[in-house]
Amino acid sequence: MIRLLAALGALVLGGLASIGRLAIFTGQTVSHIVRPPFYPRELGAALLQIGYFSLPVVGLTAFFTGGALALQIYSGGARFSAEAVVPQIVAIGMVRELGPVLVGLMIAARVTSSIAAEIATMKVTEQIDALVTLSTNPMKYLTMPRVLAATLVMPLLVAVGDIIGIFGGYMVATYRLDFTSVTYLKNTVDFLEWLDILSSLTKGAAFGFIAALMGCYFGMHSDRGAMGVGRATKSSVVAAAVLILAANFILTEAFFSS
């Protein structure tokens, strides 16, 4: 019984220590965003890597999701003669939920894993130590540009995802479900509100911050060796995905509960 309690206590303490470490890491990252020196070249590279090079995966994911959503809404709506709501539900579904969440998860898969693996490998091969000996703060040089870039560029990626997702729904609706082009677009534009768009972009910024932060955190705290790099990469993606979904719920509650 005492062993069980001891194990439970160790688990709780370990969990609290992890939360504490993550909170300190987050605080340090945010503080470095506003304190010089800044590394604009690294920020530019991160913007390109996280933003521009993620466009194909974001576009493809959003396009197919929008198309599938249109088919589902059409067949589901047909059960109570509501096929006509396809444009409105595709628009609201993509902009409020599926756009930001799917883009966030794709970024977690593509960017978080890559950041964690890169930084963990740098740690294993003493590149982080080398940065310190070259009078360069690894938090400023590695973490801050990536987190800032992801936070800035994710709203744009989400906006692109929303538009392409709606376009996917439009393509399926007009070519497969016999909607007229003008009616579909008019219903989409009329139905969307500014709050929908604002929530979408805010979620994008929050998910970008989480995705990059998790990659940097697990990379910086990885164990030695190939197994350490692998574990850091896996943990970063899992943590980013779970936190993105949790943040999505909190933000949805904050924007739309009333």
Binding site: P37, E126, Q127, D129, A130, T133, L134, S135, T136
Partner: peptide, 25 residues
Amino acid sequence: MLFQGGALFDSLPVWQNVAFRLLRG
């Protein structure tokens, strides 16, 4: 400092590795 494995930055060309300290700070 010369590290055991070199600890060169993979993403930077050789000259930027060498001049790292002279390019920032």
